[in-house]
Amino acid sequence: MDPYYVALTTITLASIYGLLALGISIIWSSLGMINMAQGFTFALSGYGAWLVSQYIGTNGVVVVAGGVLTGALAGALVGGIAFIPLYDKPNFPLRSLIATLAIAMLGSQSLLYWFGPRVKALPKVFGVGSIHIGSAVASYDKIGTIVCSAALLLITLAWMKRSRRGLEIRAMMQNPEGAALVGVGLRSTAMSVMMMTGAMTGLAAVLLSQNFFVSPFAGTMPLVKGMVVALAGGLGSVAGALIAALLIGLIEAMTAVELGGQYVLITQFAFIIAVLLVRPRGIAGMIEHTRE
């Protein structure tokens, strides 16, 4: 086993899972909604990036921007359909969950109808090649993935920490009525949350499509992975999601090397179920516990 390879794969996977899980986690904690349409956002962003690469340019920056922008728009669409009409209605959590599931079904079938079942490949946005540092080899793909997602994660976290909008989102996570009393509009803040998380998913879609193809149902696996990472990290916790992303990335890399690719999901699930049996609220619950 090559430790450099495992470490690099772990960090690559962790950064993508982190993007996906953080989106789900932030939406859950600020809007109280489980966004099952994240997979649709993912697939749509892949197609958005593909369209951009077909009609506008194959420059890496342009393609990434296309994916991120499509993701933000898809996030806004999901928010407009599943959150805005429902949030003050009775039984909101269940109904919004079902609404996002309906969007997932509608969306993926529309994509299938529109683009056909044939998969599409995105251009290599980071170019082909690799860097050698001592005995370690790192392909441009992986480095690009790590740098891009780390940059977006850091920007997002800094924005959440420093800006007024970020403070508003954090306030809304804690107490929506109190937030309204300090002039936070629930709807506009919700839409900005949806667009932000959509953009994160869009970036993840472009990055992951470097190795996989763009297809109407490409979003299911990332959705499931993002969700279980968010679940293991403790829904609503940024730190927990990041730690869980690292751990699950590590497990995936180790399993792939030691046992073989088909066991990845099984070991991951065994890990998650073990975590959840010990801490039903995920790893973040663990952190809070030790802090006390």
Binding site: R164, L167, E168, R170, A171, M173, Q174, N175, E177, G178, A179, L181, V182, G183, V184
Partner: peptide, 19 residues
């Protein structure tokens, strides 16, 4: 009921009032 944000710090709270 104060409608405070329990996880945020006091200075964050004061800032949140500046809309």
């Amino acid at each position: 009921g104060d409608a405070l944000f329990h996880g945020l710090t006091v200075s964050d709270h004061l800032d949140s009032g500046a809309y």
